[in-house]
Amino acid sequence: MSSPKLLEVRNLRVEFPTRRGTLVAVDDVSLDISAGEVLGVVGESGAGKSMTGAAIIGLLEPPGRIAAGEIRLEGRRIDNLPYHEMRKIRGRQIGAIFQDPLTSLNPLYRVGDQLVETIQTHLPLNQAQARARAVKLLEDVGIPSASERINAYPHQFSGGMRQRVVIALALAAEPKLIIADEPTTALDVSIQAQIIQLLKRLCREHGTAVMLVTHDMGVIAETADRVAVMYAGRIAEIGPVQDVIKRPHHPYTVGLMGAIPAMGHKVERLTQIDGSMPRLNAIPKGCAFNPRCPKAFDKCFRDRPEPMPAGTSQAACWLVQEPAHV
């Protein structure tokens, strides 16, 4: 890991104060993203994947807030910036793509106007230059006859085409990092692969790093350089994608991988992880995975494991330290 870190997240904690006590949605999460790298973030619904992404671009929905930790972009701390400072970073340094392209675009504005508006917010271009750039962006994301379609309204595009427009918008000001929050979940399976390929190609061309939040391991395997597996607001395992898939250390990751049908292997039944993720207000003492873990031993019920080196990865599991229990 000698390449300079683009994004560093250290001990991030996101809390939601509610009437019945404080919910910890993200707990003590640390991760890095290098320039041009694709970091996949996987986990079940409510594992804190999207919350981590929202915290990084400073768009946590109130009353959610960053309670502890820090976020650095190219060494500069960004989690405590005032709103108007953070606004200049959003779009310009860190772009975002959300899950549902059908609702991400304002229905009352032409896509061209939304592009031009974004471009002119961040780049010193006049109307004509910004428009030329908008057409170029639409061509880049594979919209046919872009110079005409620029005048269309969002509802005149299909779901897949709209997600392309969203990607164009996210890339409009050449950000260094894009947070893609389940960019393909709302799309047809046949379109999903196209969109992922497009995102991958554009980010390689522009040298943009991506934090790809998804619950689709297949997408991660194909796209990501490294992967972080999240469980109940914490990172269970993080490491190079091939290592995590082929040699998972955390029992949760092992369970996840067992649940993916593999090509070429004839398996009667896919393994499944019994039970479900604990609710945020009922996370057990010790390791949060202990009620479902087939290998849990006494220490797992007592102490919470921090991520610790395990081969090329890091895994938050006591088994890494005490392999005798395996």
Partner: peptide
């Protein structure tokens, strides 16, 4: 509360553009 307002913020648009351009028109 809609996604397109969240996305408009994520694009770094100014508050004025988000509130009066995108939100008010809707």
């Amino acid at each position: 509360r809609t996604d397109y307002i969240k996305f408009a913020r994520a694009r770094g648009l100014s508050n004025r553009a988000v509130h009066f351009g995108h939100a008010l028109k809707n």
